[in-house]
């Protein structure tokens, strides 16, 4: 019996989220008395599968099929369902990214099993009667829910950024086994038909530095000094929901529960009051520097560091100081 971990990758490079799922999965599988297996799907899966023994997977299923060359939620979900049935897996785990949650939801719907999304902790010994217990995230992380899961096949995702993905202390064999599912041609209906690249290089979710602006910035034009500072620090600009609602920045720049979750080395949050909607998107930042005229603003009281003052003066002064030190 096994715990099957769904691993996502970008043309052969495993995502950080997958490593988080494997790291979360190791103690879970051990406590549940299950072997940990992994599945990697699609083009480049071979390359991604090669290192998974080091992350504790004893068996790595490499799924391939003409319908699996690019992502398709239905085809991916059906592949995992067939693998679960074929291997007798009794639990499935993925990282709670948009894609991870979508694929596990597909698995859940097809198997008619419950699915608990975005767990922070899972206890397979649970309530002592065979049910698992867990704590999961609500409201993007500002509220937690304790729940029990009664199921034949346990389907869970671990919330993104709950654990850091690290290699196993004792590597497992990582034996690669190829798997070819039987997929109905009709599932092509939800396979990616085209891919459009808008920006190359660093993005909001991967940037080491994010310079954020809120309502306090005041206009679309007033974001120019934030752009300048972000450029100087090799980062990108983010914003709050008030900013996108005003049409000052595109929604793709929005940090928050309904926007992008960021996890930079430092988040410089300027003119942002720090409503829950925004905070849950920013709280995975390793350091937060708030710049605000209001010492009592939520963003200031929750930040590790703060500057009290007008961002329109403070931000250009920081940019100038960075340039001066670099000579």
């Amino acid at each position: 019996m096994s715990l099957l971990v769904i691993c996502d990758h970008d043309r052969g490079t495993l995502s950080d989220a997958s490593l988080e799922a494997l790291t979360f999965g190791r103690p879970l599988a051990a406590a549940a008395g299950l072997e940990m297996a992994a599945v990697v799907i699609g083009e480049g899966a071979d390359a991604a599968a090669a290192g998974l023994g080091a992350h504790g997977a004893s068996t790595v299923h490499v799924a391939s099929h003409p319908l699996l060359t690019d992502f398709g939620p239905e085809a991916w979900g059906e592949t995992v369902v067939q693998l679960v049935r074929g291997t007798g897996a009794t639990a499935v785990l993925a990282c709670g990214t948009d894609r991870g949650n979508e694929v596990v939801a597909q698995v859940a719907a097809r198997l008619d099993q419950p699915f608990v999304a975005n767990c922070r902790s899972v206890d397979p010994t649970g309530d002592g009667s065979g049910n698992w217990t867990m704590t999961r995230v609500q409201w993007g992380g500002s509220l937690l829910e304790d729940a029990t899961l009664t199921a034949e096949i346990r389907l869970v995702t671990v919330a993104h950024h709950v654990v850091e993905g690290v290699a196993a202390e004792a590597p497992a064999s990582g034996t690669m086994v190829s798997f070819v599912p039987e997929l109905d041609d009709a599932l092509a209906r939800t396979v990616v038909a085209d891919r459009v690249v808008l920006t190359r290089g660093i993005t909001l979710s991967t940037a080491p530095v994010v310079v954020g602006g809120g309502r306090g910035v005041g206009s679309a034009e007033a974001f120019a000094p934030l752009e300048e500072l972000a450029g100087e620090l090799g980062g990108v600009v983010g914003c709050s929901r008030a900013v996108t609602n005003n049409g000052w920045r595109p929604h793709s720049d929005q940090v928050g529960q309904t926007g992008t979750r960021i996890a930079p080395e430092i988040y410089i949050a300027s003119g942002i009051s720090g409503a829950i909607q925004h905070w849950v998107g920013a709280m995975a930042a390793k350091n937060i520097l708030a710049i605000n005229t209001d010492r009592e603003a939520n963003m200031v009281t929750r930040a590790g560091h703060a500057v009290i003052g007008d961002l329109h003066q403070v931000i250009p002064a920081i940019t100038e100081e960075v340039r001066r030190r670099r000579g």
Binding site: L289, A290, R295, V300, T301, R302, A303, G304, H305, A306, V307, I308, G309, D310, Q313, V314, P316, A317, I318, E320, E321, V322, R325
Partner: peptide, 16 residues
């Protein structure tokens, strides 16, 4: 505890 690095543009060196 939030560490206040300063007030206004004079805080820039502490930020850097």
């Amino acid at each position: 505890e939030t560490v206040i690095l300063g007030t206004g543009p004079e805080a820039a060196p502490a930020v850097v």
